[in-house]
Design a protein around this nucleic acid. Sequence first.
DNA 1: ATGTCTTTGTGAACGCGTGCACAAAGATAC
DNA 2: GTATCTTTGTGCACGCGTTCACAAAGACAT
Lengths: 253, 253
Amino acid sequence: MARLPLYLRALTALSERSVPTVSSEELAGAAGVNSAKLRKDFSYLGSYGTRGVGYDVEYLVYQISRELGLTQDWPVVIVGIGNLGAALANYGGFASRGFRVAALIDADPGMTGRPVAGIAVQYIDELETIIEDNGVSIGVIATPAGAAQQVCDRLVEAGVTSILNFAPTVLSVPEGVDVRKVDLSIELQILAFHEQRKAGEASPPAAPASIPSGPGAPAGAVVRGRDDAEVRAEARAGRDGDPGDDLPAVMPA
Amino acid sequence: MARLPLYLRALTALSERSVPTVSSEELAGAAGVNSAKLRKDFSYLGSYGTRGVGYDVEYLVYQISRELGLTQDWPVVIVGIGNLGAALANYGGFASRGFRVAALIDADPGMTGRPVAGIAVQYIDELETIIEDNGVSIGVIATPAGAAQQVCDRLVEAGVTSILNFAPTVLSVPEGVDVRKVDLSIELQILAFHEQRKAGEASPPAAPASIPSGPGAPAGAVVRGRDDAEVRAEARAGRDGDPGDDLPAVMPA
DNA sequence: ATGTCTTTGTGAACGCGTGCACAAAGATAC
DNA sequence: GTATCTTTGTGCACGCGTTCACAAAGACAT
């Protein structure tokens, strides 16, 4: 149930405004979901609302917090204190809600000892010790892509069973270890995809003079500089051309 | 098809190693998906592989790039240059792959003119002008939660039709505008949820002496400090108690 | 106490994405 | 030219999540 945190946030807001009860309809609106879905979620959870009235806000907040395991606090380590790692360390969302940054770890010796968000960065050799001493079971990877799998392996080996991965790599982990991925470029690419579709459907008059696009090709494709067949033929021709700079808009990593 | 970026990344890696072709099986392995799924995805895309051989790497890279709209470059603006916004501006994943940071915008006048990642931060009054002058259609919101909806409205009004939201809020947007959300606390909470379930199932002997948990309650619930009925009763009693400090592990925002 | 009204909880249908399994297609060797 | 072998493309069935719609349940007014 990935929606529980959403409900919790909406409920907390209501709680602060001292609203005693909410109907499934209201809460669903605030969380941006269907009301029937919300009711079903709560019924799976075992929570009981009151028919004719709604759900008791405080009670639900407590129930969901408990279900999510937020009544205990979870020590987390952040590995890779670059731009992103530092931002994460400073991010308030970590500190609150039962999550405590137990340590910041970096592979650059120059970082060691430097305080980030009030916590001294530790060298990566200490990783295993830190995990074990603090009973850390959640690790955050904010390293470059190349180091991610390696760090992941060490975390898992040391006892971490949940990983939040910000590096643009697919991590392979043993059974029983959970990985969640946050990938900025992928999100952007998905947006670009939809954006292109919108542009293609909306403004056929905006099509610039170019190579005639084949039938079935989306209208957004007119921006491309080369014909499909051309590229395909070249690619098939034994790859004599220099691979890498013949596809301009494609990134290096 | 949210998997295309994943494929693209794997394919690009292969391309750099000058691998001419891949089978669906290999590529699926690298992307961490089922091979049948991958083949079906590609067939929807209209791409043709060669039976008995596999897919041509270069051709696929080009096709997917085109499908995702990566053959043109997309100017994006980042609004809210705090820790996270600055990290995003510095993040390499933006600059490459057809995305160009057109502007950094912040509501703090003290930030105006300060260079972040080589780009001078602009004051939020310029938002509309920037969007229109640069033809920006993708906006990134990295503001505090309170300002997010407001910024969102201005972005949309100015012509942005795709938004990547890092603020912990549900944004409401008109039809036709795409929003993707990246929420760190939610990711962590989901991990904690699974973590708790694992702990509950795995180590029943580890249950500390506590209030007897009711039947059907997950074992992880033993960590809680108060009984269900107790909280429920109190919550129902007209909310005489101080709301907010009686639920220890629950966060303020 | 009774009736009405609101809102929950859930049975059932729908749709979609996933994965299996196999036939068609092309390459490669002989 | 024929046979074999690899790998794609896809028909089909399964399972899950979503949504509709309605009956049961409780509150509230009379």
